[in-house]
């Protein structure tokens, strides 16, 4: 029993990097895509903006679990159609892509209101001072958008970490997958204890993300 628990903890620690990699990669992908989505939605380009809106409403109303399954079964079928039949898609890729896209839908809905919250007079003032559009965005608008967007972004990050607990459903042996294997090997004992360990591991990740975002909030606060 004692030995077993030690072995379990060791297995958990071995599986943890998989969770962390997926979280970091999908957070990066999600951020990139969300920025793109937000630009498309703010610019009001006909057709494209509407498509971006449609995409956001899709990503926000479909459970992450289903996007995960669609990516897992769908990407290997779509790739040959665009001439990439030799590319091997692992469950990891499917997880990163689906979680990233899911995340982007959520945080794009954080970024857009944050951008729109900036007073129009700020734009006018920058224009009247002869700022170029790029300069205006990076010097005037963005520094004001970031403090508004950060709390919502932090929530999005925490939800992303929560959602990555589903990736074991497509056969990835992350900490949840390890727990399942361990439980079936030990004939279903100590499940409550095992899931408490998992809960504390996820909590540790969430609170780390939370404190990182809070640190950023303090640094970017407008004084």
């Amino acid at each position: 029993m004692e030995m077993n628990m030690q072995a379990l903890l060791l297995e958990f620690l071995k599986a943890l990097p998989i969770n962390i990699i997926i979280i970091i990669m999908s957070a990066a992908l999600g951020l990139l895509f969300a920025v793109l989505l937000t630009i498309l939605r703010i610019k009001k380009i006909p057709v494209i903006s509407q498509m971006a809106d449609l995409y956001v409403s899709f990503a926000r109303s479909v459970p992450g679990l289903i996007l995960l399954f669609i990516a897992y079964f769908g990407i290997p079928k779509i790739l040959p159609l665009i001439g990439l039949s030799s590319v091997d898609v692992s469950p990891m890729h499917a997880a990163i892509i689906s979680m990233g896209f899911y995340h982007s839908g959520y945080i794009s809905e954080v970024f857009r209101p944050a951008y729109l919250s900036i007073d129009k007079s700020q734009h006018d003032a920058a224009d009247s001072l002869g700022y170029t559009p790029t300069k205006k965005f990076f010097r005037i608008i963005l520094p004001q958008v970031i403090p508004v967007a950060l709390p919502g972004y932090g929530n999005g990050l925490v939800y992303l970490i929560h959602d990555t607990s589903l990736i074991f459903a497509i056969g990835i042996v992350d900490i949840m997958g390890t727990a399942e294997l361990f439980i079936s090997r030990s004939d279903g004992t100590n499940q409550i204890f095992i899931y408490f360990i998992i809960a504390s591991m996820f909590s540790a990740m969430c609170f780390t993300a939370d404190s990182l975002v809070r640190k950023l909030e303090r640094r970017t606060a407008i004084r």
Partner: peptide
Amino acid sequence: RGTPMVVFLYL
């Protein structure tokens, strides 16, 4: 805040 719903569900 820290625990995913799946983990809570299993618990």
